[in-house]
Design a protein around this nucleic acid. Sequence first.
DNA 1: CCCGTCGTTATTTTT
DNA 2: TAACGACGGG
Length: 742
Amino acid sequence: MESESDDFLDKYFSDNPENEEEYLKVLNPEQKAAVIHKGKSLLILAGAGSGKTRVITTKIAYLIKHLHTDPFSILAVTFTKKAASEMRQRAISLEEKSAYAQIQTFHSWGAYFLRKYSKRAGFFPDFTVYDDDDAVTLLTNAVPGLSRKQAAFFTHKISLAKDYCLTPESEILATIDDSPEFPDIYLAYEKKLRATGNVDFGDLIMLPYLILRDNPEIRHEIHRRYKVIMVDEYQDSNVAQFKLLEMLSGVQENAGTYVCVVGDDDQSIYKFRGAEVQNILNFQKQFPGTDVIKLETNYRSTSEILACAGSVVKNNSSRLGKNLISARGKGKIPALIFLPNQDDETDFCADLITNTHEKGVPYSEWAILYRTNAQSLGFESTLLHKKIPYVIVGSLKFYEREEIKDAISCLKFIVNPKDEVSFQRIINKPVRGIGESSQKKIIAEASAVSILDALGKVTLQKKAQKGFTEFCETYNSLVNLLPFRIDPKTDSKDGNSTQDKKLSAFVDEVIRLFGLEDFHRCQDEVSGSQKIANLQELINSAVLYEYSKKGLLDFLDHIELDRTLETDASGEESDCVTLITVHNTKGLEFPRVIITGMEHGVFPRENKTKEETEEERRLFYVGITRAQNELYFTSCSCRRLYGRTSYMEPSPFLNELDYSNVRVLGEKPSSFNSKPSASDDPIALEYKKGTSVYHDDYGHGVIVSAQYSEEGDWVVKVNFETGTIKRFLPKYQKKSLLVEKE
DNA sequence: CCCGTCGTTATTTTT
DNA sequence: TAACGACGGG
């Protein structure tokens, strides 16, 4: 999603292929410098909306066209499939040989590498990828004592450990989690995972790194192949990805690979998932002699919007420092609106949108941003009620639906019959009389090749025996349907001519023969038909793949490594307001943006460390810089939170805005910039947050929150040692609520 | 094996 | 508040 001008430029120049040099002339001097740069490594610090994708794609085209780089030797990695496909398309439109460059996500490259080198690295080639949910099930199997909740906790930790490239043996594993059992749990998980032959997300990065590190021969082969490596959104790379990049590029062996990373340290918002800002901050050290080019001209937003963004982000300490300058000039002043409560907030947004819509502004120009998914609920019901069309981006995901996961498990199990997680998911769906204990028995007796080898070895109850036998028969007949060995001459690249049969026919067969279709149809009348429709959609999406084992593996990779895209592929171009979390807006832009819930505790969430607050601030920065023309902030003085209605303080980030540049509307809460200021109110000074108090009826306690109410009264919330939480108006309670002197 | 009820617990989530 | 998991009864 880039600006209209980019679209125009793309089209304009793809229509003028003979005008070779023109595509460089449209760049500003910094962009051009970044494109033609060569030799040393390059760090491109690309501010929001500074045309970063344009630079990367032009660079790829330039490398091929002017420097005669073999496209086969170019690797460009991104973090999302969406970014990858956009990059590939735009690069191809500039230079069609870009189609032969490897432009894909980090993880799909990892899968490609593991399959390619599996033999030489002594690795199972027909792996499929376990998602987080599967991993939890696997861990439950690996460590029998764990409850599902505990398993989820440790699975998360294991995945974090892999993000930091730490093995179970690592001495600094305690930095991830210091519970004494963690290394053993991690080790048990790894053993179980290797036994199934499958991999998890973390493995797709960490295993290629380990293989490259330990196999000089493969490493050198890789170095001979890749002459140029580019990484997009580098601020979101994790430690494992850095190590992989280091190994791939051979920087320590002077392999001569040209490395170019692009990112914006101010937009690093995935620390909680293992992203490491230090990667971009330290890049110049790790890749000696790196040149740095800053892209600071912003083509997206008006200068007022950028002024907001700048005044906020300057409060962060560890940054490389950038200053965005608007190429678009002045526009409308952003507005901050104070509202009594969240219902007024949703009403306000709806009315604002309706009002402009009546004046001809399409709904699709609007995006409503919020910090947490839970906040979308109110907007949904209001918009529904007021008949404003909307889309929610990124909530319920197609591939996380039960029936889809079931079907995928069937497919995964067919590829890899050692996959006990998928086996457990499908064996008793529909009911085959194989309960938990029978499943355990079967898995225990399974051979290293297949779980089905347990047939004949285990003694089960009559019903279970029959069910298992039938299951095995179904499995075998399905496997026989699929040509496992394909003609090596039939390359997948342009192979829709030779074989007419599509993988969708196979997927259809699998779903039917395993009884999934009937199972979900019978479950319940209403949701059943939706489930059948979803299964049908899955079947349809397999039409693009060849009817072979390789086609099936490709299909599964595609699903596991790209779980977002498919939903909007149905081609709905209708005019809708976008409801979206701030995290999900990265890389997007909208003409009009409302950032909602600007309250302390909501945005930012109650964070403790300075680091976390800085990440929240960057998140706010990302939100602001999505807006092209109009920007609104809303803040409520009251909000229902966890079933309680609480008084809210305005977000501290709002104090960082420059109010010569922001219009403030609505009733300002007393604690915001106005009269009853806490700094000269004796009651407020005495009853502050954190103060210890004593109450005759409730005992000792601590003030956990203190602020002015709508009526202008100072309200404190006290958490007593007994565990009860009470609210008081100190004005009237001075006698019974005593401040304890230290 | 399914369903109701009680208790617990609340981020963000590219792959 | 609401949603989900754990548990127990029919």
